[in-house]
Deep mutational scan, measured.
Amino acid sequence: SKIRITWGDKTWEWDGDDEEVWKRILEWARNLGDEELWRHVKEWVDK
């Protein structure tokens, strides 16, 4: 399956939905430097 994140007018996609993928997404969000996006992603990961 895919994980799709839409933020503003951008959309990103990742293949898979296991823990490793979420770790990569969390790292990606942090590297993007958008605090609010990172917080949202972290909330999803922690669920």
Score class of each variant (00 low, 15 high):
1 S>D: 11
1 S>I: 15
3 I>M: 04
3 I>D: 00
3 I>A: 02
4 R>V: 14
5 I>E: 00
6 T>V: 10
6 T>A: 08
6 T>N: 10
6 T>L: 09
7 W>A: 04
8 G>P: 01
8 G>E: 10
9 D>G: 04
9 D>R: 00
9 D>Y: 01
10 K>V: 11
10 K>N: 10
10 K>A: 12
10 K>R: 11
11 T>I: 14
11 T>L: 09
12 W>E: 04
12 W>L: 08
13 E>M: 04
14 W>M: 02
15 D>F: 07
15 D>M: 08
15 D>E: 12
16 G>F: 15
17 D>K: 12
17 D>L: 10
17 D>C: 15
17 D>F: 08
18 D>R: 08
18 D>T: 15
18 D>E: 13
18 D>H: 13
18 D>S: 15
19 E>C: 04
19 E>F: 11
20 E>F: 13
20 E>D: 14
20 E>R: 07
21 V>P: 03
21 V>M: 06
22 W>P: 03
22 W>L: 07
23 K>F: 07
23 K>L: 08
23 K>N: 09
24 R>P: 02
24 R>Y: 09
24 R>F: 08
26 L>Y: 05
27 E>H: 08
27 E>W: 04
28 W>D: 01
28 W>R: 00
29 A>K: 00
29 A>R: 00
29 A>I: 04
30 R>P: 01
30 R>D: 08
30 R>E: 08
30 R>K: 12
31 N>V: 11
31 N>W: 13
32 L>K: 07
32 L>A: 12
33 G>R: 04
33 G>L: 08
34 D>K: 01
34 D>Y: 07
34 D>I: 10
34 D>S: 06
35 E>F: 04
35 E>T: 05
35 E>P: 14
35 E>Y: 06
36 E>P: 08
36 E>N: 07
37 L>D: 01
37 L>P: 00
37 L>G: 01
37 L>F: 15
37 L>V: 05
39 R>L: 13
39 R>V: 09
41 V>Q: 00
41 V>T: 01
41 V>E: 00
41 V>W: 02
42 K>N: 08
43 E>Y: 08
43 E>F: 06
43 E>W: 05
43 E>G: 08
43 E>Q: 11
44 W>H: 08
44 W>T: 05
45 V>D: 02
46 D>C: 02
46 D>N: 07
46 D>L: 05
46 D>S: 10
47 K>G: 13
47 K>C: 03
47 K>L: 10
47 K>P: 03
